[in-house]
Amino acid sequence: MIPAAFEYHRPGDLPSALALLQQHGDEARVIAGGHSLIPMMKLRMAEVPHLIDLQAIDALRGIRIDGTRITLGAMVTQHELIAHEGLARVAPILREAALQIADPQVRYMGTIGGNVANGDPGNDMPGLMQCLDATFHVTGPGGERAIPARSFYESAYMTAREEDEILTAVSFDAPTGGQAYEKQKRKIGDYATAAAAVILTRSGATCTHASIAMTNLSDVPVWSEAAGAALTGTPCDEAAMLNAIAAMLADIDPAGDNRGPVEFKRHTAGIILARAIARAWSRA
């Protein structure tokens, strides 16, 4: 549980951080809250000769709500997400999801940027960000880029971010309609056995739009366009829900692990999604 030796860098601004990343290339990684990277280093599954700590960069902090557009600095912690009353009003699903991440001590340190950038399929925020159709903002030697969350994840720990880029912020439009984040886990601090993010809009008795994303049921988060489509235009009745679940099950590809075998995960994925849809619909 002792990492290999490393140099610790603490740049005060983004250009300095980018310069360090350029200078050390493959030998460098940026660190935000550290709750994924530090355990990997301690297990010696990741060797990082140059660790670039982003916490002194003020430009990466802060929650901004401009009209309906919400921007979260990469270094915003899960605790800050939970505590922000304005955010809870315009996008309550963020608080609901963040409260399902680990425990308060972890949430004081863990950041939105680290959570989405690491590409860990167990993390909760990537699926939620896909559900919200969020945009990830990265900055590299070539300048800034905006990458849709729905096309960011390639495989476990592999993302569209280049090695010399830093994820600086996440932005998305305030969701409308009913929202729910449902997660089954074995215990506090665990990754999801299955989790679902659902946002539904409603006109009268009809669902007019649905966005559904699943967590830890594939090597990447799964935004199931087909599951959303199965609800759109329906009264979100049992038949529609079963169609949405069937569509979602066609999109996920869970692996067996200590949480259980594939058949169990597929079954609970359906149950969790049904619960999330029901709750979101009740709020729509």
């Binding site: 425990d103 074995r186 215990k187 506090i188 665990d190 200590n258």
Partner: peptide
């Protein structure tokens, strides 16, 4: 309800960290 030392068929220990070895917190 969950705590175990489990091995796979190769004798690899599957529960060597507190992520997989269940230690209840106040919440559970």
């Amino acid at each position: 309800m969950g705590q175990e030392i489990a091995y796979d068929e190769m004798g690899n220990m599957k529960t060597a960290t507190l992520m997989d070895f269940f230690m209840p917190t106040a919440w559970e």
